[in-house]
């Protein structure tokens, strides 16, 4: 065998090794629009519906308290001309007490709504993050970057964006089938 043949075989082996090495050494990276992933996640949509249902219930109670105060107040104005001093004091005390209760309820409502919203968001984001980890492992990704407003990912090739595939898999996982 001529020297040139050895040289050629050597060159082929080296270039193949370099190609194989660079293939495995290059980290597999993908980018995900995290905001869209969370917002379009069926789990988020269902949790939002549940939250809205709870809010509707709370608001109904709030409305009925407001109506009760309005009615009491209008009755008081209608009757005020015929009330004794003591009766007037009693009715005014009652209205003030009702208003205080309403204020207390409204404050509690606001706090509850905030806490519920925060709890819901944390639960959903945890579900999404846990699935992204599983998906990344199964698909052999080394890094999955989140693309959000104001973050560090300034450019990514369209082919690196796996939001649609991930969202599809995430929703399939949520359905449980």
């Amino acid at each position: 065998m001529k020297k040139t043949h050895y040289f050629l075989i050597g060159a082929v082996i080296i270039s193949t090794s370099i190609a194989v090495y660079s293939f495995f050494a290059t980290p597999k990276i993908a980018v995900v629009d995290f905001k869209r992933l969370v917002n379009d996640y069926q789990g988020m949509k269902d949790a939002t519906l549940e939250y809205e249902k709870k809010m509707t219930g709370w608001n109904t109670t709030s409305d009925s308290l407001t109506d009760a105060i309005k009615n009491e107040l209008s009755d008081y104005y209608a009757d005020s001309a015929f009330l004794s001093k003591q009766e007037r004091i009693n009715r005014e005390t009652k209205i003030i007490s009702m208003r205080n209760k309403f204020m207390e309820f409204s404050k509690g409502l606001e706090e509850n709504a905030m806490a519920e919203d925060q709890k819901m968001t944390i639960e959903v984001v945890n579900q999404v993050l846990s699935f992204v980890e599983k998906y990344g492992n199964e698909k052999g990704y080394d890094v999955i970057l989140g693309k959000n407003e104001g973050d560090e990912v300034l450019y990514r090739k369209a082919s690196m964006d796996i939001t649609n595939d991930l969202l599809q898999a995430l929703n399939r996982n949520y359905e449980g089938f």
Partner: peptide, 13 residues
Amino acid sequence: DEIFDTGTSSFGF
């Protein structure tokens, strides 16, 4: 899951 606060999990069969 209101116990561990992991949200709703579905298991389809």
